[in-house]
Write a protein that binds this DNA or RNA. Structure first.
Lengths: 192, 192
DNA sequence: CCTAAGTCGAACATCGATGTACGAGTTATC
DNA sequence: GATAACTCGTACATCGATGTTCGACTTAGG
């Protein structure tokens, strides 16, 4: 659904504006209704259903859209050089994305299957995974825990930071530093 | 509400069984309805409303009950000796509690205010906080990040482990070791 | 300029959950 | 054993959200 293939120009525009509105609305409130999203998009509720068969598919498309948008920002990160420094750079730019769309993710979790969400995240996750494996091969990162676990921990720490900011217990400027300091320490080999 | 004070004996029994059923039902499904909880408790739905004014109050009481139950289990942990080893012991016994009631927590998050949840968790959190501060004073734990942040990270890693187990990507037996290894590394002072 | 595609709002059917009301039956407790 | 507390089921009112249908209007695109 929502294939922009043969659709007319104004239909494509509608789909784009709906998608964008869905991302923004769900990023504010994970329980945003279709009505609210339609209103935010400046579009009738029926129009939304004209492009997306149901709410779940809309949330799916919104998450995919947000991830796709984030990808370009992640592509600019220099992953060469010392794995530790590269990871720091990667964290700096990806953590903000996580923060922004954390509510959107929650929306997805309550409507989409875990497998589906995992599939949607495959792209970004693989990027981190590769870097971790390289750092591991160079002896900079620890070797006694699975890479999937380490990647997950990084994710989890970022989510925690987002929660803390959201609760006004952490200043947004400091988050990046905290996360990097924590994750790098967690990734370091046991004996050092 | 649900004060067991002057209530009759059978009423107290009802409240107890409802509370227990609520904890179990919400631990399976965070969106469990009042009907489901009542059925699980072997009690009429109206009876539930006779003791708890609304669903939110019931969830609140259920979370409080679960935390109180966990407290006794946490009380047995020996927090003396090397902070690192004490933390390992504390993680081992508390992480399972987090796992079991992770769905319940999600239920609470969608119905209770963040402040309220924080208040309910004050007891267990303080326990960890104290230990971290001691380890910090002894130079075993890092000093360059706020204790609240460190405690939060530990929480966050445990939640992540629970998610992984729940998704069948992590064996329950290994979780404890993974968590301890990760958290201890994250807590170690930067230069070592 | 003609037609098909798209949009609109309003209305409708459905659904599940919440919370309340009632009346009759049970059971604790004094 | 009498009374007040408790429980039960059923029924009801309400609510909000979902998804569909309809008919009229607008607009893109050959």
């Amino acid at each position: 659904m929502a294939e922009t293939a043969g659709r007319r120009a104004d239909a494509q525009r509608s789909i784009a504006v709906i998608l964008q509105a869905a991302v923004e609305a769900l990023s504010r409130d994970p329980d945003a209704s279709v009505s609210e999203i339609a209103k935010a998009a400046g579009v009738g509720r029926v129009t939304v259903y004209g492009h997306f068969p149901n709410r779940a598919d809309l949330v799916d498309a919104a998450l995919a859209h947000a991830i796709e948008q984030g990808r370009s920002s992640l592509d600019e990160v220099d992953l060469a050089g010392d794995p530790g420094e590269a990871l720091t750079r990667l964290i700096d730019s990806s953590w903000q994305l996580v923060d922004r769309s954390r509510s959107l993710l929650q929306a997805a979790q309550s409507v989409l299957s875990p497998d589906r969400i995992r599939t949607l995240h495959a792209g970004p996750a693989e990027r981190v995974q590769k870097l971790v494996e390289r750092g591991r091969a160079e002896g900079v990162f620890r070797d006694d825990l699975p890479t999937e676990w380490l990647v997950g921990v990084m994710h989890s720490v970022m989510h925690h930071a987002a929660d803390e900011i959201n609760a006004a217990r952490l200043a947004p400027e400091e988050a990046g530093g905290y996360i990097a300091a924590t994750v790098l320490a967690a990734f370091r080999p046991p004996g050092s």
